[in-house]
Nucleic acid binder design. Sequence first.
DNA 1: ACCATGGCTTGGAACGATCCAGAGTTTCAC
DNA 2: GTGAAACTCTGGATCGTTCCAAGCCATGGT
Lengths: 345, 345
Amino acid sequence: MVMPRSGGHISAAPPTLADVAELAGVSRQTVSNAVNNPDLLRADTLARVQDAIDKLGYQPNRAARSLRTRASHLIGLRMPALQEGTANAMMDRFVHTFVEAAAETGYHVLLFYGDPADPLDGYDELLRSTAVDAFVVTDTHLGGQQTTWLQSRRARFVSFGRPWTQPDAKHPWVDVDLAYGAEIATEHLIERGHSKIAWIGWHKDSLLGEERRSGWIHAMHTHGLSTTGLASRTEDSISSGKAAADAILDETEPTALVCASDTLAMGVLHSLFERRLRLGEDIAVVGFDDSQVAQTVPPGITSVRPPLEEAARELVKALEELLATPSYAAPGVMLKPVLTVRGSS
Amino acid sequence: MVMPRSGGHISAAPPTLADVAELAGVSRQTVSNAVNNPDLLRADTLARVQDAIDKLGYQPNRAARSLRTRASHLIGLRMPALQEGTANAMMDRFVHTFVEAAAETGYHVLLFYGDPADPLDGYDELLRSTAVDAFVVTDTHLGGQQTTWLQSRRARFVSFGRPWTQPDAKHPWVDVDLAYGAEIATEHLIERGHSKIAWIGWHKDSLLGEERRSGWIHAMHTHGLSTTGLASRTEDSISSGKAAADAILDETEPTALVCASDTLAMGVLHSLFERRLRLGEDIAVVGFDDSQVAQTVPPGITSVRPPLEEAARELVKALEELLATPSYAAPGVMLKPVLTVRGSS
DNA sequence: ACCATGGCTTGGAACGATCCAGAGTTTCAC
DNA sequence: GTGAAACTCTGGATCGTTCCAAGCCATGGT
């Protein structure tokens, strides 16, 4: 080494292992050990090296480390498509906690973008260039394309969402039991004295929708209540929520409505608004997701709140194990949502 | 080279430059040129190399490339703190477009987490480890700590938000002219025939708040309307929005309210809800941010919509220039919001 | 006094790409 | 036909780190 780089003329380049080694009077490898395996060093050497590290403000170069160890300490997360409804706000909360939890274990999150029309777009490039150590997949209910493809490429990943279409999938996953969510929502209404409780949900081909619907049915039947004429299936949008509410209010006059999403619940609110019915007084409404909207609309919409924070933490935990043990096959984790009760019921 | 790695036994490691070079019968450097400076190669050589690249599915290793070129092609974005109100949904929309725009120019976004109590937390580590090429800073209105610190570290960054407290800052920035936003919101109400238009805003020490407030004042005075007794300043929360609305509705009986945020507007809605006043009929309300909530609450809240997509694209453009020309000093870009009119006015 | 043991430290090689300087080939003007 | 310039292509060095195998040194048993 001819000259310490840190003494450079222009904007000092970051110090390297060699700089620290020189200052501490040890070899490069010893500094490396001080950082990665401190217990290999004698106490006094360690202290000396630590001093030098602090003095120079040394921080291992990520690229060099990645190159050598074949680990980037980055987790890839494909930016979920922006949705019309309230679901992306939920994703936001999830992403937030995930980033936080990942940071605690030394991982950062690499956000990437993929053409919404192609569920696989974006993954391949990052995988081939070994840019990330693993992925988090979020939209498993849209079909197993992403997970099967990743599996075939021997990529590491965990999913937020059970492997709906592949019960034998071996990757770690975390999901929220929203059938149970619908059940507690319905039971809450029954406790409040309602018996004509309608369901406004999604189309039959929506796995998530049928899942939630089953919870409503189960609760109704358990309590000996009829569901005939009380179910309606539609798109997940405000306008179709309104239309569905209009129809069902005209036909069967329920006293309470359980909606498969806060978006649909908002549609219901539009219907009530037109009919000059007072939410929470004339009629009760329960939604799903506990979105910003549900929290803020007066008088507040009772909503099924998925434990996103817990889910994120569980996923990070699974990721850690997966990356430590390549063959790691975790059992899926199913979390229970809670009902946040507000003025709407 | 003893053995091509691609012919390996277990899970084939990704192909390297050397593998491609061997297959195409050229040197490593030629392959590198084929990828980065195709016009340096003779047409037939290029074709041959391209074939080999395609056949092997070669993708340059990011870590190796980063190490050599000292560029990671990652942009650091510190996860904004989760807020009570509606502002984070706005950030979500911004982040989304930003990731998309960045992807188009070959950059990915590295999300990181920092202790909310320390606005600088997280930056240093990434900077020292040369993990990112640049940062996007978002909360400039909270004081110039982040930008001054980054500047002192000679870090590259752009900010979404003007340099409020340092008019001489030299970094590129993009911001939205929300004084103008308040102005068009107020004028919209004046056009609708209102003359007693109240302002519900933030505390005096909020730069953003005073900015917006000035637009309301300007519009009112331009049209010869008085503002006395019509302004109120409070926290950015639903409950304080409600309290402020309660007070002002009791005292001065305005026919319209302009709120500094959708969160405050929601607070107003709570007040109206209690008073059984009908939004958009008995009284008009305009908010800021055009959040999910404003879009979905019946009958919809008229709101000032910041052009987040455009802002994100402008920022990416500035970043590109900044990274190409280290000394690049861009003029700041000020964008104009538009008013999304809904049922509340 | 000698060798084995274990604790601590070291220099060389490697990860996979690009930079650099030079070598070989072609082109073209004189 | 010759030399210079332009065009292609190449091998070696390098970025900053960790892996690997070996070296040094004190300890302790024989």
